[in-house]
Design a protein around this nucleic acid. Structure first.
Lengths: 196, 196
DNA sequence: GGCGACTATATAACTATTTACATAGTGTTC
DNA sequence: GAACACTATGTAAATAGTTATATAGTCGCC
């Protein structure tokens, strides 16, 4: 439902399937993910529908590339998707359902679970902070003089920064509650930060 | 990958497929969703694997039910899933990828997009606040004297409350940035709250 | 007594996603 | 020169999830 549109969005600049996968890994990965085996057929289908056009091009490394370009029809399809308003599909957060049933394992295990979660979120937060720092050094020093394309990308990044900062805080709050319980049953548990 | 475990978690108390769907709609819906057509085959498979047991039972309304009970093996499978640590599957947030490409439509449309998003998040926040209020009146007045099962459920609810409150704030921040741009190009746009 | 709403279970067809495999060129390292 | 890593494109098989449809009992309404 969304992958074809995501590809149309990423093809503001022409690229091959392989290139697109790289782009996914750079920035989009924080909110969308696709395997190469999903990208290639999706591109072929979009071309068949006339939303993309392709041409072969030699590669400096490895076999020749198939460069896809967005057609006018493709651009309009993207704009339509964006104009239809936000797509809020049913989110599935496995870690929250796990937490919901976490009383089925001993408290010491619950603490380990939340520590692992906190460390994962903290790591993602650091990754995003790094992206912001590298970016800011270039042209985002004055966030509201950014060109349109940069502004929306900065807003997307902000949502990630705010989200993961909040999640880390929430994990700490949960750990506090679980650990107070641990103490009251006679056990001790130092609040070690697990760094992998 | 996760649905069978979610079902095992929800079967702390015996229930039929139909019952489970109702339970999904009550609380779990905020972080997991499943269609009946997904639940029935999943239950049948779990029974075949010996993680569940079923018996027919008459219903007060409609045809007879098939009540599933978790076996010892089923409980251990759930505990294993929980002990393996948090499952952080690749999240897909279509609305963030839309935002990422939102420079492809005019600024007035971008503002509408963010307003719609804010209103959706605000509505979910109100739903969760209502759940908390109803709950608090019963036994969550002293959040840290809760029994284990209630504690983890309260922690799950907290994450939703914090998340949606943050998302609404973030939308407001984005709207501010988009609207200042709108003004500077000579247009006006009142910050109307769209209530459906 | 027919209709619609709700309870209850299930299958079929389709779309989306993941995992595994197949193929081939290019460059580096042992 | 063999092995390995990386570039490059794809297919096949399996799993997960959605949408549509079928069947059947109960209850209340008109």
């Amino acid at each position: 439902m969304s992958l074809p549109h995501v590809l149309l969005g990423m093809l503001a600049e022409p690229a091959s399937g392989y290139d697109l996968k790289q782009r996914f890994e750079q920035s989009v990965r924080y909110f969308w993910y696709a395997e190469l085996s999903q990208i290639y057929p999706a591109l072929a289908k979009l071309e068949k529908q006339g939303l993309l056009r392709s041409k072969q091009a030699p590669s400096d490394k490895g076999p020749s590339k198939k460069i896809y370009t967005r057609t006018g029809k493709g651009k309009r399809a993207l704009q339509e998707w964006l104009s239809d308003g936000p797509v809020l599909r049913t989110e599935r957060l496995a870690y929250l359902t796990q937490l919901f049933f976490l009383d089925e394992i001993p408290n010491a295990r619950r603490i380990e679970f939340m520590q692992e979660l906190r460390d994962d979120f903290a790591q993602r937060l650091e990754e995003l902070k790094l992206i912001e720092r590298n970016w800011a050094s270039e042209d985002a020093r004055f966030p509201d003089n950014l060109p349109d394309g940069e502004l929306v990308k900065h807003m997307t990044l902000r949502s990630g920064l705010m989200k993961y900062a909040m999640m880390v805080e929430w994990c700490e709050e949960c750990l506090g509650r679980l650990e107070s319980r641990q103490e009251s049953t006679g056990h001790r548990n130092s609040r070690n930060r697990k760094v992998s």
